[in-house]
Amino acid sequence: MAIKDYLRERFFPHLWCSGCGHGIVLNSLLRALADLGMSKNEIVMVSGIGCSSRISGYVDFHTLHTIHGRALAFATGVKLSRPELNLLVPMGDGDALAIGGNHFIHAARRNIDLTAIVMNNRIYGMTGGQYSPLSGQGIMATTAPYSNIDYDFDTVELAKAAGATFVARSTTYHTQQMTKMFRQAILHEGFAMVEILSQCPTYFGRKNRAGSAIDMMESYKENTTPIGSKSKMENPDLIERGIFVQKEVPEYCNEYDKIIEKAMKGR
């Protein structure tokens, strides 16, 4: 299927700013779905609130645009009720890890089969540039006018610690890697978390003198490195890209099927 066929052109133009990384994430995600030959009727996309969450309006799947931070909780209901469906859950960094942090760790802990995508631009874009739990110290934001003193989460470490069975990270600069990761995450049976560093030139970029969208993407190239590379050993500040965790662990809906079997037999 062509990528265009996955889009709801009726609802374009989209609301993302020029230079926003989220469109690149959408492109890579649709390429991954096309590569896998997935049909539109078998995909449910559940999103929360924020710039990133508007992604669900633009794709021709069953789409559920929910409330701030709760996408994974809604998705859990859809998936457990109809395990044969493929769940994609794109979220922003504030959406997934501030207001939605509890749902994030518990969905990971259950190992329910869905693909969580954290589109991390380190800022609340839709409300105008406030700091998020992924902004980190020293970042300027409209609510951190003297610079941010909050430490940031490492999304990958958090997902690992919470029990996610597939954990990966890439950036909007590395689109081919991103597409490949999405393919693997979707095929993975269990909770898959893919973090994508995605530029917000409008707020994060401007507040932090990070330059244009292209400059910000260049910085993803310069400041990231494949997992376990030599340059990581030489420069520990580099952010690693790649698949950190990929393991087979019994999946939640399959385990619940066994509960049904037990219950029907009378234990």
Partner: peptide, 14 residues
């Protein structure tokens, strides 16, 4: 919060 969200998601599947 999650309980309420989950039943809404499940209801949409019928």
């Amino acid at each position: 919060i999650a309980s309420m969200c989950a039943i809404i998601g499940a209801s949409l599947t019928g």
